[in-house]
Design a protein around this nucleic acid. Structure first.
Length: 649
DNA sequence: CTTAGGG
DNA sequence: CCCTAAG
């Protein structure tokens, strides 16, 4: 069967270290080919089928307790399935099963002295237990001793979720069966969950069976298209998500409709594009007391001559915002990001579980404007005009801010988010954020001299009442299907697929275009713009914004580790493609950097680490993989020099 | 465009 | 995260 073939395919173990840089172009060609193969694996099919098999197997063999040391045709499925059973004393078996199967496979496909797995087996104990040792200490001798080491030795190290609170990661299904494997194993360790109920599913497919977890599962996701189907039974279909107030955790319940697996490869975000896009996030002079326009000798001076100043400014502003946070929570957006707020938004309560919202006005996103002091008021007007137009033309999207935090998960119901008719309503705010797409025509003209703050004219105020929102009445129904929620709001609201200010195609274009009031103002603005060469001018006033910091979630780290274990440390593009293809905001440089810090972190003592704690087990894997691949690298170099000298002689 | 490495 | 040299 095709499926079996595919499965086998996915388990061909760790890949050969990348060839040295000299052959990179060739390698790239190779990777392209390989990637095509990967695509042929058609991850979604694969995942779905694996999951399906699990379900089936569960049904058919629920009674038979054939503890599998035997490998079934999939090598791992059986072990996973059996892991449903109470595991306490089976953990070591568990681990060994896991390791054995992959080790077997990896050794087949490996042409190096040892595979990563083998390396892990032999080097693991020493490396991990004395995790501060440099990876180079793992000598080849220890590698060769591997046969004396029982495969189960490391099992204890891998009992990730045995503590009674399993942690699940949602992995994008890009053909990486190992991930599935891994996850399935973890699933198997759910205390009382039935592993087969929980599988990753391709985002464009529906789970074949009701999805629920009985375990106390923590769910975390990182990829934009992760289909996470973990529901907490105790809480009315409330996804057990979002411990991360940033954007990481809360996105995974999104039932994406994107067909990921077989679509053409997407390129990694173009830096230039990013910069251009970033340039859209202009800082605005908000109040006259705001220092945006430094009144320098009575003249308007450019405030941000360089980025550093800009950052400095930004930071200080941030703290200002934080200081003032208590007073008006709804004005706070994501730090430094939300660029406009809904002001004076009133929330009315109504009886029957409806939330009535009234948005009196929006502010335009903040702008930074740089203009020579010799400029005339007229040109200042035009400049402001430009800036505003640029933003509006780029489209806007709506963000929701609750208690000062951005609500990223579009799939949560209002109720789940805490926006209900009987609480928190005053903490609710909306933001308008610049969008990337340039497709909108200018729609707004400002005509006030110093316009530090530009109040949106009626049109935008009315925007939220566009048809799709059903006259500001959003029905809160707990049993609302995700799909419905998406279709009802997804078109309008900020896409949780790309939570950060970064560009999303999910724009308000439609809504905007539909609004006649908005269109009505168009002429004026175009006229104003026509006066001067917009693009050249604005280039100078555009300031590239530093990307927002987005800490890696544990799930992301896990994915990264997994990918690096397989691909090595020198192929970040492949790592990106493999494990983060859907996370647009993670560039391969980011991944490389993250790995760097991971290695660093792993060497630190537990107390010295900061941020969201990465499971020690993961850090151990980081060290192991790092050790392995650097060893591999040196080995390569040795070989290289050998052949070189050989050629010379 | 990718990698590697410093900042 | 950013920047940049180097390939």
């Amino acid at each position: 069967m095709v499926l079996q073939k595919r499965l086998d395919y996915g388990f061909n173990g760790y890949q050969v270290p990348a060839t040295p840089r000299a052959t990179r172009s060739a390698r790239r060609r190779g990777t392209i080919r390989k990637r095509q193969e990967d695509k042929q694996l058609c991850a979604f099919d694969l995942l779905a089928t694996v999951a399906g098999n699990l379900l089936q197997e569960k049904e058919t063999s629920a009674t038979s307790s054939n503890r599998s040391t035997e490998k079934d045709q999939y090598g791992f499925v059986k072990g996973c399935k059996d892991a449903n059973k109470p595991l306490k004393n089976e953990l070591s078996d568990e681990g060994s099963c896991d390791r054995r199967s992959s080790a077997d496979l990896s050794s087949q496909a490996y042409d190096q002295n040892c595979s990563f797995e083998e390396f892990t087996h032999s080097g693991f104990a020493s490396i991990v237990t004395s995790s501060s040792r440099s990876e180079r200490f793992v000598s080849e001798k220890s590698m060769n001793d591997k046969s004396h080491i029982e495969t189960g030795n490391c099992a204890g190290k891998f009992e990730i979720g045995s503590s009674g609170c399993a942690e699940f990661s949602c992995f994008k299904s890009d053909g990486d069966v190992d991930k599935v494997n891994d996850e399935l194993h973890k699933i198997g360790k759910m205390p009382n969950g039935t592993g087969s109920e929980m599988c990753s599913y391709p985002s464009d497919e529906k789970p074949p069976a009701p999805f629920s977890s009985r375990g106390n599962a923590k769910l975390s996701g990182f990829s934009d298209n992760i289909p996470c189907i973990l529901l907490s039974p105790g809480c009315d279909n409330v996804p057990v998500v979002s411990r991360d107030d940033d954007e990481n955790g809360s996105r995974c319940t999104h039932p994406s409709t994107t067909t990921k697996s077989c679509r053409p490869m997407t390129r990694i975000g173009d830096r230039r594009i990013r910069k251009i896009l970033a340039s859209k996030y202009w800082k605005a002079a908000s109040e006259s007391k705001d220092d945006t326009f430094c009144n320098n000798h009575g003249n308007l001076k450019p405030i941000c001559q360089n980025r550093k100043n800009f950052y400095k400014r930004q930071r200080s502003q941030k703290s200002m915002h934080q200081d003032a946070s208590g007073s008006s929570p709804m004005i706070r957006g994501a730090p430094g990001l939300s660029s406009s707020e809904a002001r004076q938004q009133t929330t009315l309560q109504s009886r029957d579980h409806h939330v009535k919202l009234r948005i009196k006005s929006f502010r335009v996103p903040e702008l930074f404007i740089e203009i020579p002091e010799t400029a005339t008021i007229g040109s200042l007007k035009r400049t402001v005009m430009e800036a505003v137009t640029a933003i509006l033309r780029g489209g806007l999207r709506v963000g929701v801010v609750l208690q000062g935090k951005k609500v990223r998960d579009d799939n949560k119901t209002l109720l789940q988010t805490g926006i209900s008719h009987d609480n928190q309503l005053d903490a609710l705010g909306f933001t308008l954020e610049p969008n990337s797409s340039q497709s909108l025509s200018p729609i707004f003209a400002a005509d006030s001299p110093r316009v530090p703050r530009i109040e949106m004219p009626q049109p935008l105020t009315r925007y939220p009442s566009s048809p799709a929102v059903d006259h500001q009445r959003i029905q809160v129904t707990s049993d609302m299907l995700p799909e419905n929620r998406v279709t009802s709001l997804g078109n309008l609201v900020e896409s949780d697929h790309d939570p950060a200010p970064s560009p999303t195609n999910t724009s308000l274009e439609k809504g905007m275009a539909d609004s006649k009031a908005l269109v009505a103002v168009t002429e004026m603005s175009t006229e104003a713009i026509a006066v001067l060469p917009v693009h050249q001018k604005s280039k100078h006033s555009v300031i590239a914004q530093r990307r927002i910091r987005r800490p890696f979630s544990v799930a992301e780290v896990e994915a990264l580790v997994q990918a690096v274990e397989k691909l090595g440390t020198g192929r970040w593009r492949d790592v990106k493609l493999r494990a983060f293809d859907n996370a647009k905001h993670r560039t391969y440089v980011d991944l490389k950097d993250k790995w760097k810090t991971l290695v660093h972190t792993a060497r630190l003592s537990t107390q010295q680490r900061r941020g969201e704690p990465v499971p020690q087990q993961l850090l151990d894997r980081v060290l192991t993989a790092h050790a392995y691949w650097s060893q591999q690298q040196t080995k390569q170099q040795l070989k290289q020099t050998e052949t070189d000298t050989g050629l010379l002689l």
